Simulated scan of single mutants.
Amino acid sequence: MDINTLSASVASSIISRIVCYPLDTIAIQHTSSTRRPIFSVPLRSYYRGVGVSVCMVTPAFALYLCTYRQSKESLLPYLGDTTLNYVASGTVAEISSSLLWTPMEVMKARLQISTTEQEKKLLYNLKQIAQNEGIKGFYRGYAMGLGIFIPYNAVWWSVYENVKKMDAIAGFSLPAQTALSSIAAVTASAGLIHPLDLVKTRYQVATSGTVSDVAHTSVGALRSLDQKGIAQIITNVMAESGKRGFYKGFVPRLCCSVPSSLIMMSVFEYLKPDETAKDESVTGEDFIA
């Protein structure tokens, strides 16, 4: 893990997180069925939890990108610059960084959907989770997260790396290649895993006070049952909206993920270009020879 890769990953994470955080908040509120009219609350409320996100996402994302790049380079002699390498490297990166991602996601989601003054405070949420659920409360959805994001990363990196190598965009500048590859990767992977991500998000916020308040309304009559587990959440989504309910918040999620990914990868590729991509003829046999 070299300092240039680390610095590039940190910079790309912070910039994209700050720019796109309001869009992420809107997407989380849609996904967890706690959304409010966009202009009914002040802009600063859409940045609730941004400090937690930056502090925790930055090291998690730095670990993720550094692990991916290092894994990809380490596997070149065995797998070459191939889709199998991208899948394996993305899997290793996801497993390594998930220990940091999950607690951050739990806290961030609770802050983003909060409506009471207490739930808007980080320390209150930390105490509530610690007292009521213990350490496992910070890892709600951890196993499901791995089940979702391992295939997500496999698709994301496979599409991203292969689109970059397509003849149709080979003559474009690096920023243009990065932008097109990022958009294609996000659209393909998000479309695949959004239903599972929706279930995971609802599970992670199921014990929050905001969800409890929603559960007492006619709109959210089933929400109190979300705490029973993933199978119950799936049943609730079907009862609320049918199959289309599993894609609730998909458009807001794309509106957040596309610019976020574009900014992240553009900054990262600019500060730390992929050395393995300079020679398109690199194969496992080349390294072994």
Score class of each variant (00 low, 15 high):
residue 25 T to E: 06
residue 206 A to Q: 10
residue 83 T to W: 10
residue 221 A to I: 09
residue 189 S to N: 01
residue 228 K to R: 08
residue 130 A to D: 07
residue 90 G to N: 07
residue 229 G to Q: 02
residue 9 S to A: 15
residue 231 A to Y: 09
residue 289 A to I: 06
residue 70 Q to C: 11
residue 246 F to G: 05
residue 139 Y to C: 06
residue 141 G to P: 08
residue 184 A to Q: 02
residue 223 R to E: 15
residue 144 M to A: 13
residue 20 C to E: 06
residue 170 A to L: 03
residue 85 N to M: 05
residue 134 G to D: 05
residue 210 T to Q: 11
residue 96 S to M: 13
residue 11 A to E: 02
residue 79 L to F: 12
residue 201 T to I: 12
residue 272 K to N: 15
residue 152 Y to H: 09
residue 261 S to Q: 06
residue 24 D to K: 14
residue 118 Q to V: 08
residue 147 G to P: 00
residue 65 L to V: 13
residue 45 S to A: 11
residue 146 L to D: 05
residue 136 K to W: 10
residue 122 L to E: 01
residue 169 I to W: 02
residue 269 E to H: 13
residue 284 G to K: 00
residue 49 G to F: 00
residue 262 L to V: 14
residue 56 M to C: 07
residue 201 T to P: 04
residue 70 Q to R: 14
residue 249 G to A: 05
residue 211 V to P: 15
residue 54 V to R: 07
residue 239 A to K: 09
residue 163 V to W: 01
residue 67 T to F: 09
residue 279 D to Y: 03
residue 36 R to L: 15
residue 253 R to Q: 15
residue 223 R to T: 10
residue 32 S to L: 05
residue 251 V to Y: 00
residue 233 I to L: 04
residue 194 H to M: 08
residue 161 E to R: 04
residue 221 A to C: 14
residue 201 T to V: 11
residue 92 V to T: 11
residue 18 I to D: 04
residue 225 L to F: 10
residue 178 T to Q: 04
residue 99 L to T: 08
residue 10 V to N: 08
residue 284 G to M: 03
residue 179 A to Y: 09
residue 51 G to C: 13
residue 214 V to E: 15
residue 179 A to F: 09
residue 164 K to H: 10
residue 281 S to I: 00
residue 162 N to W: 03
residue 132 N to R: 10
residue 181 S to R: 01
residue 182 S to V: 05
residue 238 M to N: 11
residue 247 Y to W: 05
residue 113 I to K: 03
residue 146 L to K: 04
residue 274 D to H: 06
residue 60 A to R: 06
residue 130 A to T: 11
residue 124 Y to H: 15
residue 179 A to G: 06
residue 242 G to N: 05
residue 217 T to L: 08
residue 254 L to K: 00
residue 143 A to H: 10
residue 150 I to G: 00
residue 81 D to H: 07
residue 69 R to T: 12
residue 121 K to A: 11
residue 134 G to C: 03
residue 135 I to D: 09
residue 117 E to K: 09
residue 166 M to E: 12
residue 192 L to C: 07
residue 154 A to D: 02
residue 269 E to C: 11
residue 186 V to G: 01
residue 170 A to Y: 02
residue 116 T to L: 06
residue 236 N to R: 11
residue 167 D to M: 08
residue 283 T to V: 04
residue 61 F to N: 14
residue 36 R to E: 14
residue 281 S to K: 02
residue 13 S to P: 01
residue 175 P to N: 05
residue 175 P to Q: 04
residue 73 E to F: 14
residue 217 T to G: 08
residue 223 R to F: 14
residue 69 R to D: 15
residue 18 I to V: 10
residue 39 F to E: 11
residue 136 K to T: 09
residue 153 N to C: 06
residue 67 T to A: 14
residue 171 G to M: 02
residue 145 G to M: 07
residue 78 Y to M: 07
residue 18 I to Y: 00
residue 114 S to I: 02
residue 32 S to A: 12
residue 216 H to F: 09
residue 191 G to I: 00
residue 138 F to S: 06
